[in-house]
Design a protein around this nucleic acid. Structure first.
Length: 429
RNA sequence: GCGAGUGUGGUAUAACGUUUAUUACUCCUGCCUUCCAAGCAGGCAACGCGGGUUAGACUCCCGCCACUCGCACCA
């Protein structure tokens, strides 16, 4: 990321090149929702796929899950979300302070001391409400999940009953969550519909510190794989007063976004809080019996929680680069190859030479079959195509020229260095 | 949700109470082009939405929506 990169530059590029659009754009947009265009989907998928590969497919102790977005409302009562988020808040007309109407004497403002200035209490709940089934009353109310974690906890027993994995083991999930934020801000940083990649890692309580440390290191590996420079990543040890009540240790991983240093992901030790909240029909907690022993306990949980949009925004911020070539401004996305939405762009050097076009088509087809994410471009001149590909972060441009017809070699132009090398078609990859 | 500000093609912008709303880049078509946004010809494309004032509103007024910045919120 260039020092002076502004969020507007990224927003503008994201729209111009088909990465990210305002939600419902043609109708004037809707606050807190964004849509992904062709390039954005590709980039986002590359990120989530990388995560899934890294934390699920390549490990023996991790299992995937995909729970429904709408759950039994009891889930949100047990987790505390219903109570926590239905606070009636009243506002003082004098100092604009907001207070729990059920916790204070609303005849006098505890902040400025004015009397009789409070508004009627209003409900502020971050959960999106909906009704399940044809009846539209209190009995049918449920919520769009405000986090994916509960979908994992509620399936803990199902997984243990079916696979009975050794501890420690983890369940991973990628999915949407919804929060009715009062004021969504900063592009895709704070949104009302978001995607999370979450892991609940179940451990023997005596091992939590060791496992927590392993996860701390694993998180850094992940951030490295995203191409984020270590100097832009910061660990914030969340202090006693600031942690959620159930957490004994939390590290916020922050990133130097163009909007400032903000939270990118969280790593929390949640003790046995979540599993203790869930009881089976006999009122029993989710106990785990260590195989071949009589040791029984409710596992403790370490939760690495990743926001997809924030990862995406960090990747874009890190990759956005402006420099000068021949006195002209060049904008390019220095994306890691494995994240780039398009891996190769194939062009004939000249569009009006049928033999070049035919040969280029051949190469294009071959690469597309092998990699999928390949683009064809024969518009304008070659320099223009390079710049176009630069803006979407395509690492390599392959050009077919007259020599290709003779000896099957092509020019491969590197996005970051703009250097060109001549290689045989068979060596492409 | 509160306060302040801002809304013109995809992006960035100009002007104006009254002809067909300016310009650049992008984009599309054709010509040309033997490696970094060249050139020529043509083309698509905008006054956020609704109401009011007016003979006439992109321009003035009101409401809504969206965005930006503060506050608050971020369990």
């Amino acid at each position: 990321m260039s020092k002076e990169t502004k969020i507007e530059d990224i927003v503008s590029l994201a729209k111009r090149r088909g990465f990210i659009f305002a939600g419902s754009d043609v109708y004037g947009g809707i606050s807190g929702f964004y849509d992904y265009g062709p390039l954005g989907v590709a980039l986002k998928r590359n990120i989530t796929n990388l995560w899934w590969h890294m934390f699920v497919e390549s490990r023996d102790d991790m299992f995937g899950i995909d729970a429904a977005i709408i759950m039994n409302p009891k889930v949100w009562q047990a987790s505390g979300h219903v109570d926590t988020f239905t606070d009636p808040l009243a506002e003082c007309g004098e100092c604009k302070g907001r207070f729990r109407a059920d916790k204070i004497d609303t005849s006098k403002c505890p902040n400025c001391g004015k009397e009789g200035t409070f508004s009627e209490p209003r409900q502020f709940n971050m959960m999106f409400k909906t009704n399940v089934g044809p009846v539209d009353d209190e009995s049918s109310v449920s919520y769009l999940r405000p986090e994916t974690a509960q979908g994992i906890f509620t399936n803990y027993k199902n997984v243990v009953d079916t696979l009975y994995p050794d501890l420690p083991f983890g369940l991973a999930q990628i999915g949407k969550a919804f929060r009715n934020e009062i004021s969504p801000r900063d592009f895709i940083f704070r949104v009302r519909e978001l995607e999370q990649m979450e892991i609940e890692y179940f451990v023997n309580p005596k091992d939590w510190e060791v496992e927590f440390e392993k996860w701390r290191l694993a998180v850094h590996e992940w951030l490295k794989a995203l191409g984020l420079k270590p100097e832009n990543v910061h660990e914030l040890e969340v202090g006693d007063g600031d942690r959620a009540h159930y957490s004994k240790r939390t590290i916020d991983f922050e990133y130097d976004f163009p909007i400032g240093r903000e939270e990118l992901l969280g790593l929390a030790y949640r003790t046995d809080f979540d599993l203790m909240n869930i009881k089976n029909n006999a009122g029993k907690s989710m106990e785990y019996t260590v195989k071949g022993s009589t040791e029984r306990f409710v596992p403790h949980v370490i939760e690495p929680s990743f926001g997809v949009e924030r990862a995406l925004m960090a990747v874009l911020s890190e990759a956005y680069t402006e420099d000068e070539v021949n006195g002209e401004k060049r904008i390019y996305l220095k994306l890691p190859e494995h994240l780039a939405p398009v891996k190769y762009c194939v062009s004939p050097l000249l569009k009006n030479k049928p033999e070049l076009v035919a040969k280029a088509r051949e190469v294009y087809k071959a690469l597309q079959e092998k990699y999928g994410a390949v683009m064809w471009d024969d518009n304008g001149n070659i320099g223009k195509r390079y710049r176009r590909q630069d803006e979407i972060g395509t690492p390599y441009c392959v050009v077919i020229d007259f020599d290709t017809l003779e000896d099957d070699t092509v020019t491969v132009r590197n996005r970051d260095t703009t250097e060109q090398t001549r290689i045989n078609i068979s060596e492409l990859a």
